[in-house]
């Protein structure tokens, strides 16, 4: 176990090192910091002096060493646009993104497990077929399009009246097809609860929650079908196995077999995929936040690109890289812990 742990940590360290080298290469090759600092009117001789003073003429390795030492101390430089340390900018935007991810994860967990299990237990029922076909459609809709459709349906509203509105049943059917709209679809709203530091939360007021609903549902929409299909496939396989048949033969109640015996082994692969997908969700937050103007890290990153705010871009890369590396390492460790058949020291198959 210790050897496995050390190996994984080494691996994570190497990946972070590569990310930092790439980030530094971007930072040192893009844009001229002197230009950013002093503007046009300063003569060339003073620029050269400043360049020497700041150590910009040192070799790549020396400069990288300085960058790495600063980065380890949490100093990534100043954002050109905000004119404050990039880490502070990120800290201000991080909670919004985290809340979005947490809300989406809650939706995914609450819905995917029961639906996936149901589809595995009754694979031929009409409801299962319905869930499976909805899920393949769900996979095929890009997340930003889901978001746009949700905005049209629940924020703007749809007035669709193909049936005669004079009659009672026509009105009822029209009402069924049309939506009211009125859900907020822009930003986080004003009714935020202050938790600590830079963290203002949407979770503790009804108004805040309404702002969270549409973005969280859009973000969940891309992962939910994936998890339903995965849980169903794994559960179907587990239900075929000998130990489940044996448990049935012993006369254990079906409910216990499904939810205690089978579900446990179903969740093993779900954990690995889930961890990796959690990282993927960071990529999708960029899209969701753009559509809903959600003031999180993703939107900040896109705006930083438009403003060529190199230090902020680089800091974002490093932080996102760290998130990916940490989740992947944790997933591997958890998988090793809960599944004793994985040979910890050997190569993962």
């Amino acid at each position: 176990m210790i050897a496995f742990l050390i190996k994984r940590l080494m691996h994570a360290f190497v990946v972070m090192f590569v990310i930092s080298v790439i980030s530094f290469a971007i930072q040192s090759n893009l844009g001229d910091p002197i230009q950013q600092m002093v503007g046009q009117s300063v003569p060339e001789s003073q620029r050269a002096e400043l360049r020497e003073e700041l150590g910009l003429n040192d070799s790549f390795l020396v400069q990288y060493g300085r960058f790495a030492v600063n980065a380890l101390q949490g100093d990534f430089g100043y954002s050109y646009f905000f004119n404050e340390p990039t880490t502070e900018v990120i800290q201000r935007h991080l909670p919004a993104t985290l809340e979005l991810v947490i809300a989406a994860t809650l939706i995914i967990v609450v819905f995917s497990v029961p639906i996936g299990v149901y589809c595995a237990i009754r694979p031929r029922s009409a409801l299962s077929r319905f869930f499976m076909s909805v899920s393949i459609i769900g996979i095929s809709i890009p997340v930003f399009l889901t978001a746009i459709m949700l905005i049209q349906l629940f924020a703007i509203g749809v007035d669709f009246s193909p049936f005669p509105s004079g009659t009672g049943w026509g009105q009822w059917l029209n009402g069924l097809l049309s939506t009211e709209g009125g859900m907020p679809s822009y930003g986080r709203g004003n009714d935020l609860t202050h938790l600590f530091g830079t963290w203002d939360s949407n979770f503790f007021s009804l108004d805040g929650l309404t702002y969270l609903v549409l973005p969280a549902v859009s973000l969940a929409s891309i992962m939910l079908p994936l998890f339903i299909r995965l849980i169903r496939a794994e559960m179907l396989e587990v239900l075929q196995s000998e130990y489940v048949k044996f448990a049935t033969a012993k006369g254990i109640s079906l409910k216990r077999i499904y939810f205690v015996h089978a579900l446990k082994n179903t969740m093993l692969p779900v954990i690995t995929v889930g961890g990796v997908q959690l990282g993927t969700m960071v990529a999708y937050t960029i899209l969701t936040e753009t559509v809903f103007q959600w003031p999180g890290m993703g939107l900040m990153f896109l705006e930083a690109i438009q403003r060529s705010d190199i230090p902020l871009i680089v800091t974002y890369l490093m932080i996102v890289g760290l998130i990916f590396v940490v989740t992947n390492t944790l997933v591997d460790l958890i998988y090793g812990l809960v599944n004793p058949t994985v040979k910890l020291t050997g190569k993962p198959a």
Binding site: V276, G279, T280, V282, A283, Y284, I286, V320, G321, F324, V325, N328
Partner: peptide, 10 residues
């Protein structure tokens, strides 16, 4: 692969 493909592309 551990960095999602979309993230790499973006």
């Amino acid at each position: 692969l551990s960095f999602s493909t979309l993230m790499v592309a973006i």
